[in-house]
């Protein structure tokens, strides 16, 4: 995916001021930056829940800038939104099956369910339990698992470690590396810099709606970008 000169915002408030970014297939690309840098807005603009203003998003030789979210899902793009948006009143299994809502995903439902249960055995154990009764970490795994049910080729995650205990964060991150092994491209927004630098293949740093730095994790360290923009 190639993003060129993307501008976006809410109402008349501009948040993104021309973002350029490329995602390599099968890699984990991390998007770091301080609060209010526009990281979530960038994910939402790519996915279409926020309408981008201008620019282009090339994905498999097609400009998908103005496609609505459900058309993005049809093209294999998934978003795991911030906060744990599980369907609390439904069982774990029902949550997962709803993840395969579009036709493309329904055709591969059985296989994906097997994959999801092998990645997250705890969800298989709890499949008949109501999602609202799961712990925070399990709910986060369920939201990730549910978006895997849509057979994504690109998965974007908005702060999946938010509010989780360190041990659970590790579990979530190790699940992400296993998802990468399945060939899924990942775009990860995070505040949790230490963990991200250890799993990411490439890093972008966003500040005030612009890309202010990019490189492999070790380059980011060397260039001192980490200290300059993230204060760590």
């Amino acid at each position: 995916m190639k993003i060129r000169d993307l501008e976006s915002g809410y109402g008349s408030v501009q948040i993104l001021w021309g973002v350029d970014m490329s995602l390599r297939e099968g890699a984990i690309t991390a998007l770091l930056g301080p609060n209010g840098a526009g990281k979530s807005t960038l994910l939402r603009s790519i996915f279409g829940t926020v309408r981008p203003w201008k620019g282009s998003i090339l994905y498999r030789d097609e400009d998908i800038l103005h496609l609505p979210p459900h058309r993005k899902v049809d093209r294999g793009i998934a978003l795991v939104p911030e906060g744990r948006h599980v369907f609390a009143g439904m069982t774990v299994k029902e949550n997962l099956l709803l993840g395969a809502y579009r036709k493309r995903a329904r055709e591969r439902m059985e296989g994906n369910l097997g994959l999801v249960f092998s990645l997250f055995p705890i969800l298989e154990e709890r499949q008949d339990q109501r999602a609202g009764t799961l712990s925070g970490g399990e709910q986060q795994m369920l939201t990730i698992a549910r978006s895997l049910m849509a057979s994504p080729e690109l998965m974007m995650l908005d702060e999946p470690s938010q509010g989780l205990a360190p041990k659970v964060v590790e579990e979530v991150f190790s699940a992400l590396t296993r998802i990468r092994e399945e060939g899924v491209t990942i775009l990860l927004v995070e505040q949790n810099v230490e963990n991200v630098l250890s799993i990411a293949d490439y890093v972008y740093i966003l500040n005030e709606g612009r890309v202010v730095g990019e490189g492999r994790p070790d380059e980011i360290e060397k260039a001192g970008l980490r200290k300059a923009y993230l204060g760590l």
């Binding site: 996915f47 609505p68 979210p69 049809d74 939104p81 369907f87 709803l98």
Partner: peptide, 20 residues
């Protein structure tokens, strides 16, 4: 019917799953 159920519970999550 499932789409409506999902929307009622969490509209944002429903959209993310590709429900128009």
């Amino acid at each position: 019917g499932y789409a409506f159920l999902a929307m009622r519970e969490d509209e944002e999550a429903a959209r993310v799953m590709g429900i128009d």
